[in-house]
Amino acid sequence: MQIHKIKKIISDGLGKNNPVFYQILGICSTLAVTNVLKNTLVMCLGLIFTTALSSMTVSFMRKHIPTRVRMMVEVLIIAVYVIIVDLVLKAYAPDISRQLGPYVGLIITNCIVMGRAEGFALSNPPGESFLDGIFSGVGYSYVLLTIAFIRELMGSGKIWGIQVLGDWWTNWSIMVMAPGGFFMLAIFIWIVKGYIIKDKEVKKA
């Protein structure tokens, strides 16, 4: 692996080609889990784990998978890792597992995992695919955690479940409901695309 390739993978995942605000993938979970910071973090860790390992596995097998069924194979691999995460949580961390409920299983349908398997792992070696999975996951995570931080703070006056805003604060119920997620995500994309990525595009042209 050359240095410039690694650098590209990192900057793609975190910025230029970020799965959430650039590729607009994984929106369903961005809306669903970001109303409480704790759930968001576990979701992010689960996603990083799944994306990295499933990309690596797909990459190992990429020369043997018949093109026609490649998506079935990808879903199978992703599902296996996700169910393992779910089982481990259920057995060793039942309380967290109860709180997350169906979210862990929903990682299977997170477009980012599939997107990286399709878009990167099928045409790149395992090491790079693993890294790509990790940094796509991290790119997803910091966007979600930012949104979750604001939503939890404004929606319930708490951070990490601890009350930080006093009685003077009226909770914005809409922030913990799905519309709050839409608004926050849109504002986030607006800021990033309007002020940060736009500059780069202008320079390129």
């Binding site: 069924v69 691999i77 296996v80």
Partner: peptide, 27 residues
């Protein structure tokens, strides 16, 4: 293709079943 799909399913389900049996009682 079909043989590949069947084989790969067994290959991946085996460790999963093992993990399930291992954690079943605890769950």
């Amino acid at each position: 293709t079909i043989v590949f799909m069947v084989a790969i399913t067994f290959l991946f389900i085996a460790p999963l079943s093992f993990a399930y049996l291992k954690t079943k009682d605890m769950v």
